Computed example of a mutant assay.
Amino acid sequence: MRRHEYRPPRRRSRLTRRGRLALFLGMLLATGALIAVPILRGADEAAEKPRHLLIPEGRRAPEVYAAIDRVLGLPAGSAKTAAATAVLDLPAEAKGNPEGFLFPAAYPVTSRTTPAELLTAMVRTANEKLATKAVADGARAHGMTPYQTATLASIIEAEADSAADMGKVARVVHNRLARSMPLQMDSTLNYALNRHTVDTKLSETRIDSPFNTYRRQGLPPTPIDSPGLRAMAAAVAPTPGKWLYFVTVKPGDTRFSATYEEHRKHVAEFNRLRTADAGTRMVAGRAQQQPGARTG
């Protein structure tokens, strides 16, 4: 069975702390609150006031296709069909799969916009962002290709509870890759199972999929969503640290650990809070029963 792996080289150049900071600042200054991407159109369309299709960070390709179909008023599946036939400037490593290259931004839409035009604009924008010197230099420093950078950034986008945690999540991934440890990311398993959840069963970690990073070492074969600039910045300039584990105990409280023993304590806290929250919801549900109900 073929294994889809990325293993970092044993010897690689490293960005200095100042270099990492400069990289972060340079990329984040270019981010802004919203990126609006122009789409070339004819003179007869210039007078029409465009609507905007907003693609948020972290959307998977099927979710982007569905958004395109909705905004254009097309039958479901139209954008997916267009993606299969459009000439998209994707890396050879992508093998025609645009996952990870449907860049999150705001795209103008008129009555004559086609799915192929939107998809082309998204891929073009992703290539422009990945082709920046900051990303290229950072990727080389870690012995990665731009496509691998996009794949790593997509995991960071899915796993980080906040933008502030992205650098630390990136460091965990880099540290695990450097030690030839499986990434063991629920986000890649969720991608394989086509779902979004924080609950993973032991049996699910044994499924046969190139996206099951519990069983397979290295990065998955493709990105798992559309990462934004902050995730890309974190991928090539991770926060310094020795962390190998992390768990989001509750919203806004992600805990990073360098040892498994410490991580187990954080996981126990997560499970305790989940159990307490489930009990609270059950009590609240009972309290919402209509008054006057009688029991035997």
Results as ranks from 00 to 15, higher is better:
residue 279 G to T: 04
residue 246 F to H: 02
residue 189 L to E: 02
residue 76 A to R: 14
residue 127 N to T: 05
residue 269 E to V: 03
residue 263 H to R: 02
residue 62 P to S: 02
residue 20 R to Y: 03
residue 91 P to L: 03
residue 161 D to V: 10
residue 1 M to T: 11
residue 96 G to L: 00
residue 204 E to M: 06
residue 28 L to P: 07
residue 265 K to N: 08
residue 97 N to E: 08
residue 72 L to G: 04
residue 258 A to Q: 01
residue 152 L to Y: 04
residue 54 L to R: 14
residue 183 L to W: 08
residue 151 T to L: 07
residue 167 G to S: 11
residue 259 T to L: 02
residue 215 R to K: 15
residue 154 S to G: 11
residue 87 V to D: 14
residue 174 H to W: 14
residue 249 V to P: 01
residue 256 F to S: 02
residue 222 T to P: 01
residue 133 K to L: 13
residue 49 K to P: 09
residue 171 R to V: 05
residue 264 R to Q: 14
residue 57 E to G: 11
residue 254 T to W: 02
residue 243 W to C: 00
residue 282 M to C: 04
residue 214 Y to V: 04
residue 28 L to N: 07
residue 261 E to V: 05
residue 192 A to I: 06
residue 167 G to A: 10
residue 173 V to R: 00
residue 181 M to W: 13
residue 49 K to E: 15
residue 68 I to F: 05
residue 182 P to V: 12
residue 230 R to I: 09
residue 152 L to W: 04
residue 58 G to Q: 01
residue 209 S to K: 06
residue 245 Y to G: 02
residue 113 T to A: 13
residue 34 L to P: 01
residue 55 I to Y: 01
residue 256 F to K: 01
residue 45 E to M: 12
residue 199 D to R: 14
residue 147 Y to R: 02
residue 280 T to Y: 04
residue 295 T to S: 11
residue 204 E to R: 11
residue 225 D to S: 15
residue 161 D to M: 09
residue 58 G to K: 01
residue 114 T to F: 04
residue 60 R to Y: 00
residue 172 V to L: 05
residue 55 I to K: 00
residue 25 L to F: 08
residue 5 E to G: 11
residue 184 Q to F: 02
residue 111 S to F: 07
residue 148 Q to A: 09
residue 243 W to E: 13
residue 121 A to R: 03
residue 33 A to N: 14
residue 283 V to A: 15
residue 90 L to E: 05
residue 139 A to D: 04
residue 197 T to F: 04
residue 290 Q to Y: 12
residue 28 L to K: 10
residue 202 L to M: 13
residue 85 T to V: 13
residue 197 T to Q: 06
residue 110 T to N: 13
residue 173 V to C: 07
residue 140 R to T: 10
residue 15 L to F: 10
residue 216 R to M: 12
residue 181 M to L: 15
residue 257 S to K: 01
residue 64 V to R: 01
residue 219 L to Q: 10
residue 159 E to L: 08
residue 208 D to H: 13
residue 81 T to F: 06
residue 254 T to Q: 09
residue 10 R to A: 13
residue 75 P to Y: 02
residue 14 R to C: 06
residue 231 A to I: 10
residue 139 A to Q: 05
residue 157 E to K: 09
residue 115 P to I: 07
residue 81 T to L: 12
residue 277 D to G: 05
residue 61 A to E: 02
residue 176 R to I: 03
residue 36 A to N: 12
residue 160 A to K: 03
